[in-house]
Amino acid sequence: MLIELKDVNKTYQGAQPLHVLKGINLSIEKGEFVSIMGSSGSGKSTLLNILGILDNYDSGEYRIDGKLIWDLSETKAAEYRNKMIGFIFQSYNLIGFKTAVENVELPLFYQGVSRHKRHEMAMEYLDKLGLAQWAGHYPNEMSGGQKQRVAIARALITKPDIILADEPTGALDSRTSVEIMDLLKELNEKEKMTIIVVTHESGVANYTNKIIHIKDGVIGQIEENSRHDATAFGSENGMLK
Protein backbone atom coordinates (compact mmCIF):
# COMPACT_ATOMS: atom_id res chain seq x y z
CA MET A 1 0.00 0.00 0.00
CA LEU A 2 1.58 3.27 -1.06
CA ILE A 3 -0.70 5.65 0.78
CA GLU A 4 -2.51 4.74 3.92
CA LEU A 5 -4.63 7.03 6.10
CA LYS A 6 -6.20 5.71 9.28
CA ASP A 7 -8.74 7.80 11.14
CA VAL A 8 -7.10 11.10 10.23
CA ASN A 9 -8.63 14.10 11.96
CA LYS A 10 -7.95 17.76 11.45
CA THR A 11 -9.48 20.71 13.24
CA TYR A 12 -8.68 24.32 12.46
CA GLN A 13 -8.44 26.17 15.74
CA GLY A 14 -9.98 29.57 15.96
CA ALA A 15 -12.79 31.46 17.57
CA GLN A 16 -15.04 28.79 16.10
CA PRO A 17 -13.01 25.55 15.87
CA LEU A 18 -13.64 23.91 12.54
CA HIS A 19 -13.51 20.14 12.37
CA VAL A 20 -12.54 19.73 8.73
CA LEU A 21 -11.51 16.11 8.49
CA LYS A 22 -13.50 13.70 10.57
CA GLY A 23 -11.72 10.39 10.61
CA ILE A 24 -10.49 9.84 7.09
CA ASN A 25 -9.61 6.26 6.15
CA LEU A 26 -8.07 5.87 2.76
CA SER A 27 -5.72 3.55 0.92
CA ILE A 28 -4.17 4.16 -2.43
CA GLU A 29 -1.99 1.62 -4.12
CA LYS A 30 1.06 2.14 -6.22
CA GLY A 31 0.22 2.94 -9.83
CA GLU A 32 -3.32 4.05 -9.13
CA PHE A 33 -4.89 7.03 -10.87
CA VAL A 34 -7.48 8.39 -8.49
CA SER A 35 -9.44 11.55 -8.00
CA ILE A 36 -10.67 13.08 -4.81
CA MET A 37 -13.90 14.85 -5.54
CA GLY A 38 -15.90 17.17 -3.44
CA SER A 39 -17.39 20.60 -3.37
CA SER A 40 -15.65 23.52 -1.77
CA GLY A 41 -15.63 23.24 2.00
CA SER A 42 -15.75 19.47 1.82
CA GLY A 43 -12.23 19.17 3.21
CA LYS A 44 -10.61 18.02 -0.01
CA SER A 45 -7.99 20.79 -0.02
CA THR A 46 -7.08 20.04 3.59
CA LEU A 47 -6.78 16.38 2.72
CA LEU A 48 -4.56 17.27 -0.22
CA ASN A 49 -2.34 19.42 2.02
CA ILE A 50 -1.96 16.57 4.47
CA LEU A 51 -1.23 14.11 1.67
CA GLY A 52 1.39 16.54 0.36
CA ILE A 53 2.98 16.99 3.83
CA LEU A 54 2.23 20.68 3.55
CA ASP A 55 0.04 20.54 6.63
CA ASN A 56 -0.10 18.33 9.69
CA TYR A 57 -3.03 16.46 11.16
CA ASP A 58 -4.28 16.24 14.73
CA SER A 59 -4.77 12.54 15.17
CA GLY A 60 -4.70 9.30 13.23
CA GLU A 61 -2.00 7.87 11.05
CA TYR A 62 -0.67 8.74 7.62
CA ARG A 63 1.91 6.54 5.98
CA ILE A 64 3.62 6.86 2.63
CA ASP A 65 5.20 3.59 1.55
CA GLY A 66 5.14 2.49 5.17
CA LYS A 67 6.82 5.65 6.49
CA LEU A 68 4.79 7.34 9.19
CA ILE A 69 4.28 11.01 8.45
CA TRP A 70 3.89 12.49 11.90
CA ASP A 71 5.48 15.31 13.84
CA LEU A 72 8.11 16.02 11.18
CA SER A 73 10.48 18.94 11.46
CA GLU A 74 10.22 21.52 8.68
CA THR A 75 13.52 20.27 7.31
CA LYS A 76 12.46 16.64 7.29
CA ALA A 77 9.10 17.51 5.76
CA ALA A 78 10.86 19.46 3.02
CA GLU A 79 13.09 16.51 2.33
CA TYR A 80 10.12 14.10 2.11
CA ARG A 81 8.20 16.46 -0.16
CA ASN A 82 11.20 16.84 -2.38
CA LYS A 83 11.80 13.11 -2.73
CA MET A 84 8.34 11.58 -2.58
CA ILE A 85 5.85 14.06 -3.90
CA GLY A 86 5.42 15.96 -7.13
CA PHE A 87 2.95 18.83 -7.06
CA ILE A 88 0.81 20.16 -9.87
CA PHE A 89 -1.18 23.26 -8.94
CA GLN A 90 -4.19 24.98 -10.42
CA SER A 91 -2.24 28.23 -10.78
CA TYR A 92 0.89 26.44 -12.03
CA ASN A 93 3.05 28.08 -9.33
CA LEU A 94 6.01 28.61 -11.59
CA ILE A 95 8.59 31.15 -10.46
CA GLY A 96 8.17 34.18 -12.70
CA PHE A 97 11.77 35.28 -12.95
CA LYS A 98 13.00 31.84 -13.88
CA THR A 99 12.88 30.34 -17.34
CA ALA A 100 10.97 27.15 -18.02
CA VAL A 101 14.07 25.01 -17.75
CA GLU A 102 15.18 26.75 -14.53
CA ASN A 103 11.76 26.09 -13.02
CA VAL A 104 12.00 22.44 -13.90
CA GLU A 105 15.50 22.27 -12.42
CA LEU A 106 14.44 23.69 -9.06
CA PRO A 107 13.57 20.43 -7.21
CA LEU A 108 16.92 19.00 -8.25
CA PHE A 109 18.64 22.15 -6.96
CA TYR A 110 17.27 21.30 -3.52
CA GLN A 111 18.61 17.78 -3.91
CA GLY A 112 22.05 19.19 -4.52
CA VAL A 113 22.31 17.86 -8.06
CA SER A 114 25.07 19.54 -10.03
CA ARG A 115 24.22 22.42 -12.34
CA HIS A 116 25.14 20.59 -15.48
CA LYS A 117 23.33 17.37 -14.56
CA ARG A 118 20.10 19.06 -13.56
CA HIS A 119 20.04 21.16 -16.69
CA GLU A 120 20.44 18.06 -18.77
CA MET A 121 17.64 16.28 -16.92
CA ALA A 122 15.32 19.27 -17.07
CA MET A 123 15.83 19.51 -20.82
CA GLU A 124 15.06 15.83 -21.15
CA TYR A 125 11.75 16.22 -19.31
CA LEU A 126 10.80 19.35 -21.21
CA ASP A 127 11.50 17.49 -24.40
CA LYS A 128 9.31 14.62 -23.24
CA LEU A 129 6.46 17.11 -22.80
CA GLY A 130 7.14 18.70 -26.15
CA LEU A 131 8.46 21.97 -24.75
CA ALA A 132 12.14 21.73 -25.58
CA GLN A 133 12.04 24.82 -27.76
CA TRP A 134 10.38 26.77 -24.94
CA ALA A 135 13.09 26.00 -22.42
CA GLY A 136 14.52 29.51 -22.39
CA HIS A 137 11.15 31.27 -22.12
CA TYR A 138 9.74 32.84 -19.01
CA PRO A 139 6.32 31.72 -17.72
CA ASN A 140 4.62 34.95 -18.82
CA GLU A 141 5.64 34.18 -22.39
CA MET A 142 3.75 30.87 -22.41
CA SER A 143 0.13 29.78 -22.66
CA GLY A 144 -1.70 28.20 -19.74
CA GLY A 145 -1.36 24.72 -21.18
CA GLN A 146 2.35 25.18 -21.75
CA LYS A 147 2.80 26.48 -18.22
CA GLN A 148 0.97 23.49 -16.79
CA ARG A 149 3.14 21.16 -18.82
CA VAL A 150 6.23 22.88 -17.45
CA ALA A 151 4.78 22.37 -13.97
CA ILE A 152 4.20 18.68 -14.77
CA ALA A 153 7.79 18.34 -15.94
CA ARG A 154 8.87 19.93 -12.66
CA ALA A 155 6.71 17.49 -10.70
CA LEU A 156 8.12 14.51 -12.57
CA ILE A 157 11.80 15.37 -12.51
CA THR A 158 12.51 13.94 -9.05
CA LYS A 159 10.75 10.67 -10.00
CA PRO A 160 8.40 11.00 -7.02
CA ASP A 161 6.26 8.23 -5.53
CA ILE A 162 3.10 10.30 -5.85
CA ILE A 163 1.90 13.07 -8.12
CA LEU A 164 -0.57 15.36 -6.38
CA ALA A 165 -2.59 17.47 -8.76
CA ASP A 166 -4.74 20.19 -7.24
CA GLU A 167 -7.40 21.23 -9.76
CA PRO A 168 -4.85 20.84 -12.58
CA THR A 169 -7.27 22.09 -15.22
CA GLY A 170 -8.91 24.77 -13.09
CA ALA A 171 -7.32 27.62 -15.00
CA LEU A 172 -7.41 26.10 -18.47
CA ASP A 173 -9.89 26.13 -21.31
CA SER A 174 -11.65 22.90 -22.17
CA ARG A 175 -9.41 21.90 -25.07
CA THR A 176 -6.24 22.37 -23.06
CA SER A 177 -7.91 20.67 -20.10
CA VAL A 178 -8.41 17.58 -22.21
CA GLU A 179 -4.77 17.68 -23.30
CA ILE A 180 -3.54 17.91 -19.74
CA MET A 181 -5.81 15.13 -18.49
CA ASP A 182 -4.74 12.94 -21.41
CA LEU A 183 -1.16 13.61 -20.46
CA LEU A 184 -1.75 12.60 -16.84
CA LYS A 185 -3.56 9.50 -17.99
CA GLU A 186 -0.69 8.60 -20.27
CA LEU A 187 1.81 9.12 -17.44
CA ASN A 188 -0.21 6.74 -15.30
CA GLU A 189 -0.51 4.12 -17.99
CA LYS A 190 2.96 4.25 -19.52
CA GLU A 191 5.13 5.27 -16.59
CA LYS A 192 3.00 3.65 -13.90
CA MET A 193 2.92 6.91 -11.93
CA THR A 194 0.63 7.09 -8.93
CA ILE A 195 -1.50 10.16 -9.51
CA ILE A 196 -4.01 11.77 -7.18
CA VAL A 197 -6.15 14.51 -8.68
CA VAL A 198 -8.19 16.77 -6.46
CA THR A 199 -11.09 18.35 -8.27
CA HIS A 200 -14.66 19.45 -8.06
CA GLU A 201 -15.30 18.78 -11.75
CA SER A 202 -16.78 15.44 -12.55
CA GLY A 203 -15.43 15.64 -16.09
CA VAL A 204 -11.89 15.73 -14.70
CA ALA A 205 -12.63 13.02 -12.17
CA ASN A 206 -13.99 10.87 -14.97
CA TYR A 207 -10.48 10.57 -16.44
CA THR A 208 -9.31 8.74 -13.33
CA ASN A 209 -9.82 5.08 -12.57
CA LYS A 210 -11.19 5.61 -9.11
CA ILE A 211 -13.23 8.47 -7.74
CA ILE A 212 -13.19 9.15 -4.02
CA HIS A 213 -16.05 11.36 -2.95
CA ILE A 214 -15.50 13.51 0.10
CA LYS A 215 -18.26 15.43 1.79
CA ASP A 216 -18.28 17.33 5.08
CA GLY A 217 -14.94 15.90 6.10
CA VAL A 218 -15.77 12.25 5.64
CA ILE A 219 -15.13 9.88 2.75
CA GLY A 220 -18.33 8.98 1.07
CA GLN A 221 -18.64 6.73 -1.90
CA ILE A 222 -15.56 5.28 -3.60
CA GLU A 223 -16.41 4.73 -7.22
CA GLU A 224 -14.51 2.33 -9.48
CA ASN A 225 -14.36 4.14 -12.80
CA SER A 226 -12.35 1.92 -15.08
CA ARG A 227 -14.96 2.43 -17.78
CA HIS A 228 -14.83 6.19 -17.46
CA ASP A 229 -18.57 6.68 -17.61
CA ALA A 230 -19.06 8.61 -14.41
CA THR A 231 -20.81 11.60 -15.74
CA ALA A 232 -23.08 12.30 -12.85
CA PHE A 233 -22.33 16.02 -12.75
CA GLY A 234 -20.38 16.33 -15.96
CA SER A 235 -21.44 17.36 -19.39
CA GLU A 236 -22.60 14.96 -22.04
CA ASN A 237 -20.27 12.48 -23.80
CA GLY A 238 -17.90 12.54 -20.85
CA MET A 239 -16.23 15.62 -22.26
CA LEU A 240 -14.84 18.17 -19.95
CA LYS A 241 -17.00 21.16 -19.20
Binding site: T75, E79, R81, N82, F87, I95, L106, Y110, Q111
Partner: peptide, 16 residues
Protein backbone atom coordinates in the same frame (compact mmCIF):
# COMPACT_ATOMS: atom_id res chain seq x y z
CA UNK B 1 6.29 34.83 0.21
CA UNK B 2 4.49 33.03 -2.58
CA UNK B 3 7.76 32.14 -4.26
CA UNK B 4 9.18 30.82 -0.97
CA UNK B 5 6.01 28.77 -0.60
CA UNK B 6 6.61 27.20 -4.02
CA UNK B 7 10.22 26.57 -3.14
CA UNK B 8 9.24 24.94 0.13
CA UNK B 9 6.65 22.76 -1.57
CA UNK B 10 9.36 21.66 -3.98
CA UNK B 11 11.66 20.74 -1.12
CA UNK B 12 13.45 23.89 0.04
CA UNK B 13 14.45 23.49 3.66
CA UNK B 14 14.05 26.44 6.05
CA UNK B 15 17.82 26.63 6.24
CA UNK B 16 18.18 27.10 2.50
Amino acid sequence: THEFGIRKALGAKPGS
